[in-house]
Amino acid sequence: MATLDLKQIRKTYPKADQETLKGIDISIESGEFLILVGPSGCGKSTLMNTIAGLEDISSGHIVIDGREVSQVEPKDRDIAMVFQSYALYPNMTVYGNIAFGLKIRKMPQEEINTEVQRVAKMLQIDHLLDRKPSQLSGGQRQRVAMGRALARRPKLYLFDEPLSNLDAKLRVEMRHQIKRLHQQLNTTIVYVTHDQIEAMTLADRIAVMKDGEVQQLGTPNDIYSAPNNMFVASFMGSPSMNFIAGCVHRNDAGQPYIEMLDSNQDPKQLSLPLAMSEYEGKDIVVGLRPEHITDKVMPDSDTLTRLELSLDVLEPTGPDVIAMFTLNDQEIACRLAPTFLAKAGQVVPLSFDLSKAVFFDAKTEQRLEVG
Rank of each mutant, 00 (worst) to 15 (best):
L36F: 14
L36M: 03
L36E: 05
V37S: 06
V37M: 06
G38I: 00
G38F: 04
P39L: 05
S40M: 08
G41W: 13
G41L: 05
G43C: 10
K44L: 09
S45Q: 05
N49M: 15
T50D: 12
I51N: 10
I51R: 07
G53R: 04
G53W: 03
E55G: 04
D56E: 14
D56Y: 01
I57Y: 13
I57H: 12
I57N: 13
I57M: 15
I57G: 13
S58Q: 08
G60C: 11
H61G: 01
I62L: 11
I62R: 11
I62W: 11
V63C: 04
I64P: 10
G66D: 14
G66F: 10
R67A: 13
R67H: 12
E68F: 13
V69R: 12
V72F: 13
P74M: 13
D76G: 03
R77T: 02
R77G: 06
D78A: 10
D78T: 01
D78N: 15
I79Y: 15
I79L: 13
A80S: 15
V82M: 11
F83A: 08
F83C: 08
F83Y: 15
F83Q: 08
S85R: 14
Y89D: 07
P90G: 14
P90Q: 15
N91Q: 15
T93A: 15
N97Q: 09
I98S: 07
I98M: 14
A99Y: 06
G101R: 00
G101T: 00
K103T: 02
K103V: 00
I104V: 11
I104L: 13
K106M: 05
M107E: 04
P108V: 05
E110V: 02
E111G: 06
I112G: 12
N113C: 06
T114Y: 06
E115S: 12
V119Y: 09
V119M: 07
V119T: 07
M122N: 09
M122C: 12
L123F: 09
D126C: 01
D126Y: 00
D126H: 11
R131W: 02
K132Y: 15
P133Q: 08
S134M: 03
S134Q: 14
Q135V: 02
L136P: 02
S137T: 03
R141H: 01
Q142M: 06
Q142T: 03
V144N: 11
M146S: 08
G147L: 00
G147A: 02
G147R: 01
G147Q: 01
R148A: 00
R152I: 03
R153I: 03
P154T: 02
P154G: 06
K155G: 14
K155C: 03
K155M: 10
L158Y: 10
L158M: 08
F159Q: 07
D160N: 09
D160Y: 09
D160Q: 08
E161I: 03
E161W: 11
E161S: 01
P162W: 14
D167S: 06
D167T: 01
A168F: 04
A168Q: 07
K169Q: 14
K169I: 10
R171Y: 10
V172I: 12
V172P: 00
R175C: 04
I178T: 04
I178M: 12
K179D: 12
K179L: 09
K179R: 14
R180K: 14
H182M: 08
Q183P: 01
